[in-house]
Amino acid sequence: MSALPRAVDLGLIACTTCGLVCRNVPGHPQLDGDGIDDAMACPRCGSTLRRRKPDSYARTWALLIAAFLMYIPANVLPIMRTASLNDIDDNTIISGVVELWVKGSPDLAVIVFTASIVVPMLKFLALGTLLVTARRGSSWALVQRARLYRLVELIGYWSMLDVFVVALLTALVRFSVLSLVEPLPGVIFFGLTVVLTMLASMSFDPRLIWDGKDTDD
């Protein structure tokens, strides 16, 4: 329906590592992310050439669900303990944001809230939506969905912000006599959430958005 030809229709494959355009070896099975491996190596860089990322749906779902399971304790459990002579305070991600807001840094509170809450939630919702709509071969808001995927890829790693904050504060305060900052398990779960969501967005193949019903199985 469009004048723009697609590689899949012309028997071409682009190497995802080096960008070389390769002619498909005749007789190879069509691949649409369903895991049938055609194991042809890129003549330039040696990476395996695939029409679509392998098992894109299954892998992305698995990583996304794992990330979500990590995200629950990351939010419920405290990420950091601050202790001084007369009080002990366990901070969660949200309480850290509230504290920044109350202590007079609303701008930083917004930044931390965005990095720790909005970005992970956006990733769960966006990748979930992309997986479902691509699987159904939906032609709804194609360009917007493509843009959404690029946004997720671009901002994903900024979620690591809170992990770095806890790590820095711990290292700074640990040797002072009067007070103490300790990392608590929440921060580990949060770090894992960020890594898993990054892996999830990498294993999603944005070309599936455009594949439509006919090339889907």
């Binding site: 723009l4 697609r6 960008g19 070389l20 355009v21 690029r150 944005p206």
Partner: peptide, 14 residues
């Protein structure tokens, strides 16, 4: 030749 081509990694357009 394939070298003269460019494929969009995000949507497979040639």
């Amino acid at each position: 030749s394939p070298e003269a081509l460019l494929i969009c990694e995000h949507c497979d357009t040639v």
